[in-house]
Amino acid sequence: MKKVITFIIVFISLFTFAQEDDKAQVLALKKANDYVYEANSLISNDNFVSAEMEYRKAISEKANTVTGTYNLGNAYYNSGNFEEALYRHQEAAKSATSKAEKHKAFHNIGNILMKNKKCKEAVEAYKSALRNDPSDNETRYNLGLAKICAEQQKDQQDKQDKDEDKKDEKKEDQENKENKDNKDNKDKEGDNKEDKKDQGDQEKKEGEDEKDDKGKPKDEKEDKGKGDNEKKEQQQPKPQPGQLSPQQIKNLLEAMNNQEQKVQEKINAEKQKGVKVKTEKDW
């Protein structure tokens, strides 16, 4: 019996709390709607600053109020603040509980994306709007425009990507060509260095061949020998006019000696010719 009484008390308490909570929610919703109404009046008079403040009060009073968030998004859109407008309409789409509310939010999201040249994303937003209200011809018309825009952007992007690829290929080919030219130049420089080295070695070898055993150049040796001969000739006395040179005197004496020797040999031969040779031996 005590358990039953306890259950009844708890149930009554929860019911009372729920009723109070519902009353608070209803009161908050009423205040939020009042703020929205005031904001709508201000926005109609082009008083954007004051209207924005009232919309924010409505959202602060009841965060999930679709009307306040949606109308604030429209106010931002009309003022040209597309980034803030997109954020508010996305919030409205999340908070919406009816298809009509979702349709309006997604339709406006598509319009904002088109303003931002995000055609592909706009196509998806318009499709979401039509899922909630397929009968809206305006949304369907905007969807067609978004598809055309998205296709054009795709073609443009593809062309740009191809141009970038060609540019990269051209740049790569140029770099390869430059690398090849640099390599060829280095190889050529290496060949020139080898040629110069071979030429230097050849000249060095020729220079060594021209030296004698003592390391002196042959030309120097020949020039020196020639100079010594010339020096000796200069040291020898030159014959005076009408006089015989020492060499001539030497040659003349040798000729006289040879002549005398021949005469002597002839005399000796005559003597030997006058003596008779015995043919028989005396007993």
Rank of each mutant, 00 (worst) to 15 (best):
I12R: 04
T16W: 11
F17W: 12
A18L: 11
E20I: 09
K23H: 08
Y37E: 09
N45T: 02
D46P: 00
D46G: 01
S50P: 01
E61G: 04
K62A: 07
A63G: 10
G68D: 08
N81Q: 04
N81Y: 07
A85K: 05
Y87E: 01
H89Q: 04
K99H: 00
A100W: 04
A100F: 06
K104D: 09
I109Y: 05
N111G: 00
I112Y: 10
L113C: 01
M114Y: 09
N116F: 13
A122Y: 12
R131S: 06
S135C: 01
S135E: 04
K147L: 07
K154T: 12
D155T: 14
Q160T: 08
D163F: 10
K166T: 08
D168M: 11
K170E: 13
K170D: 13
D187N: 11
K188V: 00
N192R: 13
D198E: 12
K204Y: 15
K205T: 11
G207I: 08
D213W: 11
K216Y: 14
K216L: 12
K221W: 13
K221M: 14
E222D: 12
K231I: 00
P237D: 04
L244I: 05
L244W: 12
P246Q: 07
N257H: 06
N258P: 05
V263G: 00
K276T: 05
